[in-house]
Write a protein that binds this DNA or RNA. Structure first.
Length: 102
DNA sequence: CGGTTGACAGCCT
DNA sequence: AAGGCTGCCAACC
């Protein structure tokens, strides 16, 4: 295999498949990527996303349905999610309602 | 090539 | 139930 042998590439493809208006968790992406214990690395990959990427990285949140970013990045992600019709309750997203498992 | 880093998740208090 | 501590593992330096 040559296209999905990189963890980073697999993460890209998985996140690109998240339906608009839905979200998933770092842990879920890690599992789908074949590394169940690499949730933290998923964040590491997104942190260095190439500028101009169209990847819907904002559709990835932590297991509590909360945004793990801070400051401006936090506001940017929240705005992107609200724009897709995702509702925040108590600062959290209802994963049972918006969660995507693949 | 080995040590450090950190967009997390689980387990334990 | 809520917060704190520890393990994990790919990317970086």
């Amino acid at each position: 295999m040559s296209e999905i042998d990189n963890f980073r590439q697999r993460v890209f493809h998985i996140i690109a498949a998240i339906p608009l208006g839905q979200v998933t968790t770092y842990g879920a992406v890690a599992r789908m990527a074949g590394s169940p214990r690499a949730a933290r690395q998923v964040g590491g990959v997104l942190k260095k996303l190439p500028p101009g990427s169209t990847l819907p990285w904002h559709r990835v949140v932590n297991r509590h349905g909360e945004i793990s970013l801070q400051g401006e990045d936090f506001k940017r992600q929240r705005q992107a999610l609200l724009a897709e019709g995702i509702i925040f309750a108590q600062g959290k997203i209802d994963l049972l309602k918006y969660g995507w498992q693949g």
